[in-house]
């Protein structure tokens, strides 16, 4: 029995039951929190494709969330309301930007890749702050949201919850399938020994570029859904600290594992909610907790749940 699949299945079943369970215990306000966690998880899973499987440590991934969010916001402002049309535009925009920056960034590797993705991330961030027509630094509140085939079902509450849930489920399945395919194996081969993969005849840079673009597109989708949830968009979602949060999520969860990014993202959001509920200065605990987890829990949360199987590493 595949333990990773079981754990993932349990998490998703649990999430699916939430809209029914929460009203019973009178905690409906947690729906928003779960949507936030799922959005973070979508972006984190996409980042794990390039960091965990590809070994390309990007510190500019949040910028693609920003691109996705702003593309959606600008689309909405210009009267496009159908969510699948917005999705297509978002995928196109993030994909195109990722393709261009990826070609340049992949000329480097290791720490230098981290720095160049940071540079592109900052460029995108400052571009977003300069969009005066769309709020500039202060951001933009959206008065109309996307519709699903003309219906407003995906605008809030349960409808939005299930829509985000579906997106997360698709991302989770999709990224895992990609990583277990021949494509994913080449990606890991290139991570562990790029020269050898190259000599075996695989165009390593092309594989890495495709992974980079896929990851960026998924992050863009997370941006689209973030706009739909928050009804607001500001450049701060693309700041480098947000990219840092995503890295925290996947390292905490366990790199390149089926559920690592998922666990990490939920851990962060729930931890924040839990700690801040009894201590306003919750970061005083959260910071040292990160340090302790790094020092003592190698392999992340995923490893605590499945200590024996080191799948896909």
């Amino acid at each position: 029995m595949d333990r990773g699949l079981v754990i993932g299945g349990v998490i998703f079943a649990f999430l699916l039951a939430m809209p029914v369970l929460l009203p019973i215990v009178g905690a409906e306000y947690l729906t928003g929190l779960l949507i936030k966690a799922m959005l973070l998880a979508i972006a984190a899973i996409s980042l794990d494709l390039i960091i965990g499987h590809g070994g390309m440590v990007s510190l500019g991934h949040a910028a693609f969330i920003g691109v996705g969010a702003y593309t959606t916001a600008i689309g909405l402002q210009s009267g496009i309301e159908e969510i699948f049309v917005l999705l297509a535009i978002t995928l196109g925009a993030t994909g195109a930007i990722a393709l261009v920056t990826g070609i340049l960034a992949l000329r480097t590797s290791g720490v230098y890749f981290l720095m160049i993705t940071l540079a592109f991330g900052q460029m995108i961030y400052f571009t977003l702050t300069s969009l005066a027509a769309y709020g500039g630094d202060d951001g933009l509140t959206l008065w109309s949201l996307a519709t699903l085939f003309g219906s407003d079902i995906v605008q809030d509450g349960r409808g939005l919850f299930f829509f985000v849930f579906a997106a997360l489920l698709l991302t989770w399945i999709g990224v895992w399938r990609v990583s277990q395919s021949r494509f994913g194996r080449v990606l890991r081969a290139a991570r562990d020994n790029p020269q050898r993969a190259e000599v075996m005849g695989y165009p390593v840079a092309r594989y890495q570029l495709i992974a980079y673009v896929i990851a960026a597109c998924i992050a863009g989708v997370s941006g689209l859904l973030l706009v739909q949830y928050a009804e607001f968009v500001s450049p701060s979602i693309a700041a480098w600290q947000r990219s840092g949060d995503l890295i925290v999520a996947i390292v905490l969860g366990g790199l390149g594992s089926r559920n690592g990014a998922l666990l990490g993202a939920f851990f962060i959001v729930i931890m924040e909610e839990f700690l801040s509920s009894f201590l306003h200065e919750w970061r005083l605990i959260y910071g040292p907790l990160l340090v302790l987890l790094v020092l003592f829990a190698k392999g992340g949360l995923n490893d605590l749940l499945q200590p024996t199987s080191r799948e896909a590493s």
Binding site: I51, V57, G110, V111, L114, G244, I247, V248, V251, L252, L255, E281, R283, L284, Y286, G287, P288, L289, L290, V291, L293, V294, L295
Partner: peptide
């Protein structure tokens, strides 16, 4: 490097707070 990034990120969060 990733572990170093994560741990030092934790220290930033702590000291800023």
């Amino acid at each position: 490097h990733l572990d170093q990034v994560l741990a030092t990120f934790g220290i930033i969060i702590f000291l800023n707070e």
